[in-house]
């Protein structure tokens, strides 16, 4: 099989600056998003994801300018998530040069939005972001639920059923984040990743918890993910994307080098 598993660095962007993950209390500045995106492109990133965590609506224009600038010089797929609630938001991001958008809470509040978006712009650019948390007791079979508001609000929706439904509504890809693992650096929730990846026909991106390169390989080999996403391990040059790919290749995973 010649299709490569993808490594996707994620930039959490707050008001035009890259910050370390949302879950960290002491948010550390990790630089200018355009500079960081350039570096990831040089290192061989397969795609780049921007997660806009800017709190106020007014400052959201900043991310549009970031995407415009990156798209003018970085020629790999770009995804933008965070604050995508209307068809107009999607159009704005695509016009700025994004190739895909990530829809998260808006899908939970209004699943039809995903259908409308896929109908209007095509499934290839609709990534549904799922934030899941384990809700089963230790002696029960594994069960995960969808949470909103950064993992604080339960919805009562089963994560596997939700993933299947979102694909049915037109999601072209699933970005799956374990809210139990996000920011912990303990590795992906592998049973969750595998359960979702085996339940849907579209590619699944594993996210949340990467602390070292072995975690990335685990996500593909044990979690059956088609792509792996990580933020903080790449931001401070702890590991380069190239480094990560070499490691995955040493574990027998097909990568683009």
């Amino acid at each position: 099989m010649a299709l490569a598993k993808r490594i996707i660095p994620c930039l959490d962007v707050d008001n035009g600056r890259v910050v370390k993950g949302v879950k960290f209390v002491d948010i550390r500045d990790a630089g200018d998003p355009v500079e960081v995106a350039r570096r990831y492109d040089r290192e061989g990133a397969d795609e780049i994801t921007f997660l806009d965590i800017t709190a106020t609506h007014h400052d959201r224009d900043t991310i549009v300018h970031v995407v415009e600038q990156v798209a003018g010089e970085v020629f790999i797929p770009l995804t933008v998530g965070g604050g995508i609630r209307k068809l107009e938001d999607i159009r704005r991001m695509l016009n700025a040069g994004a190739d895909k958008v990530g829809i998260n809470s808006a899908a939970v509040f209004n699943p039809e939005f995903v259908r409308d978006a896929a109908e209007k712009f095509g499934s290839q650019c609709i990534v549904v972001a799922i934030d899941a948390k384990k809700v089963s007791a230790p002696d029960e079979a594994d069960r995960w639920e969808i949470f909103t508001h950064g993992g604080r609000k339960p919805t009562g929706i089963d994560a596997i059923e939700w993933a299947i439904k979102m694909v049915d509504y037109g999601a072209g890809e699933i970005l799956l984040t374990s809210m139990d693992r996000d920011g912990t650096r303990e590795g992906f929730d592998l049973p969750l990743t595998r359960a979702i990846s085996e339940a849907v026909a579209v590619p699944v991106i594993a996210s949340g918890g990467v602390g070292n390169l072995e975690h990335l390989a685990d996500g593909v080999i044990q979690g059956k993910a088609d792509a792996v996403l990580a933020a903080s391990i790449f931001h401070f040059a702890e590991y380069s994307v190239e480094h990560a790919k070499q490691h995955m290749q040493s574990r027998g995973i097909e990568v683009r080098l």
Binding site: L3, A4, R6, S123, G172, E173, A201, V202, V204, D226
Partner: peptide
Amino acid sequence: HDETGTALKIPHMGWNK
């Protein structure tokens, strides 16, 4: 399926030779 028996995803998405 690939050679390990894992189901292949559709769409065919990503970097291929």
